[in-house]
Design a protein around this nucleic acid. Structure first.
Lengths: 209, 209
DNA sequence: CTAACGTTTGTCCAATCGGTCAAAAATTGC
DNA sequence: GCAATTTTTGACCGATTGGACAAACGTTAG
């Protein structure tokens, strides 16, 4: 029996990666329907028929991209576990998510685009893989609440809030920068965000008692 | 001198509204490039040339929609003012934003789409109108902090966090529903979210002392 | 009734799109 | 070196797109 995934020569591997890299750029900036094969081909430095030699349809590129995305995208949540102090654990999760928004903004936008359009291509993954993972982690968080280690609240909405606040810095980057202005919108904005979110999650806004 | 905006008959007013309503549906669901004039025309119950009689270009529809959007979209923040208890004031703001996400999800998605694509059509508004408003409100919040009425933190990132967490329930609705499942993903999710966000903002996750 | 004006539509067009195909070019195995 | 195979490309195709246009239709005022 041969390998189930038919990837042939080393050159094919490399060209496919090149195309996926270019497509990530284009799809993240323009959405699926807003992107053309020509754009991706040009960004990858090859002709359109050449690109179609490696991926037979535009959708195949997107699909490959989305499959990889989910894996890496959920990695930070997978790391959340029961050992260590709960508050520390949650702060680490926020930090990891914020780092992903900073270091992989294109992936974040690709994902946001897909969800915004109603998740037509990844709905099964959301209801399957994603839901299972969140259920599992929500159970851990609920455990912490029952043990009195964190305040009792809704673990699902807590996870949503962490997703929303962190991904915001990738998906709404242009707005964040426009509002902060040239001086505060520079590289420091992620550290400011990290400080703010940490404090919000730990203590909220009530002044120290 | 006549009215500067050349809107003629009552029928023209009505048809333009009809088209804008249909276009909001289509643009919010498919993005600008993903939407076709035919789709909008069909949703508005008229032929394509008929639609183009009222709006000469596809972009004109989108532009009109975006101009109106900013006004209504920022209304909740405009209401934030200095009278009353700061914590109560911020909770009200969160509630108003969450109600907008619940009642006007299409507007939220339209806005999200535009920002995701780099805000090509509304960048001036972000750097002008929006930034001014946020600067003004951030100053109020800073005043509260200096008065010791709320914890000292970054007012800009606080506003970002409120935007992100509330709009998440409109923009990422399908994901929220998929994760919550059929039982918890129903109509109650906005009330659950409201309760959660209120608590998060007031007290964070530190258990009661 | 009819002329003027506002509204609606069928038809058409050029540009762009995703994708095909056959042939050329480059690479590889022997 | 040469044949087989893989890679690349120019030319092409049908479908869809945004938009133009003139003719038809409807309405209203005289």
């Amino acid at each position: 029996m041969e390998a189930p995934v038919p990837r042939r020569t080393r050159i094919q591997q490399e060209k496919r990666e090149l195309i996926l890299e270019a497509a990530l750029d284009v799809f993240a900036a323009n959405g699926f329907r807003g992107s053309t094969i020509d754009q991706i081909a040009e960004a990858a430095g090859m002709s359109k028929p050449n690109l179609l030699y490696y991926f037979r349809r535009k959708e195949d590129i997107h699909e490959t991209l989305m499959q990889r995305l989910l894996d890496t995208w959920l990695a930070p949540l997978r790391e959340l576990d029961d050992v260590g102090d709960p508050i520390t654990e949650l702060k680490s999760y926020v930090r990891r998510k914020l780092e992903m928004a900073r270091d992989f903004p294109r992936q974040s936008r690709l994902f946001a685009n897909e969800i915004l359009q109603g998740a037509p291509r990844i709905m099964p993954m959301l209801e399957g893989e994603l839901k299972s993972l969140v259920d599992e982690k929500a159970a851990i968080i609920t455990g912490w609440m029952h043990a009195g280690k964190i305040a009792g609240t809704d673990p699902y909405h807590l996870i949503f809030a962490i997703w929303a606040t962190t991904q915001h810095y990738a998906d709404f980057d242009v707005q964040v920068r426009a509002v902060l202005g040239p001086d505060r919108g520079g590289d420091g904005r992620f550290e400011d965000a990290a400080r703010f979110l940490e404090q919000l999650i730990v203590n909220g806004l009530t002044p120290a008692r």
